[in-house]
């Protein structure tokens, strides 16, 4: 697929998510956390797509180097998340902290997002992974 087609598709998806959020907010009484999340997600998809299009115009956004680093970052992040999940289990088992399901999900979610980005950033600076 051509780069401009990919860009147009991503912008369209972002716009659809954004419009869905706005429509739900205006015409329904659905929880505003959902509509705000959709609007934010739409804006982020549009901005990130536009940034990538400008930065890598004519060039490649992905290659074997980025895929290798991406995969390894994900693998390391999985291990960190696994360790954090085990930690949460023991925290709950010994009753050291009272946490709701939502709080646990937020901890796991942010552990995944932050750790994968940190590992990928580190490996990109290193240049390679063994």
């Amino acid at each position: 697929m051509e780069k401009e087609t990919i860009f147009r598709n991503r912008i369209s998806i972002g716009t659809l998510i954004l419009l869905l959020g706005i429509i739900l907010e205006v015409f329904t009484s659905i929880d505003s956390i959902i509509t705000i999340s959709l609007i934010n997600a739409g804006i982020i998809v549009i901005l990130v797509s536009y940034y990538k299009f400008i930065k890598y115009k004519g060039g490649h956004t992905q290659d074997e180097w980025t895929r290798k680093i991406g995969r390894t970052g994900l693998a390391y992040s999985w291990i960190v998340t696994f360790v954090v999940t085990i930690g949460l289990f023991w925290v709950d088992y010994f009753g050291w902290l009272q946490m709701s399901v939502n709080e646990v999900l937020v901890i796991i979610f942010f552990t995944m997002i932050i750790s994968v980005n940190l590992f990928q950033f580190y490996f990109k600076r290193q240049g390679d992974v063994e």
């Binding site: 490649h60 992905q62 180097w65 240049g127 390679d128």
Partner: peptide
């Protein structure tokens, strides 16, 4: 990078000898 079909950074790390490329 364009001729080979990779990103500029990949060529940069290859030149520095930091990245071990695939045979391809």
């Amino acid at each position: 990078a364009k001729k080979v079909g990779v990103r500029r950074e990949t060529i940069s790390f290859l030149e520095k000898g930091k990245y071990n490329p695939s045979l391809k």
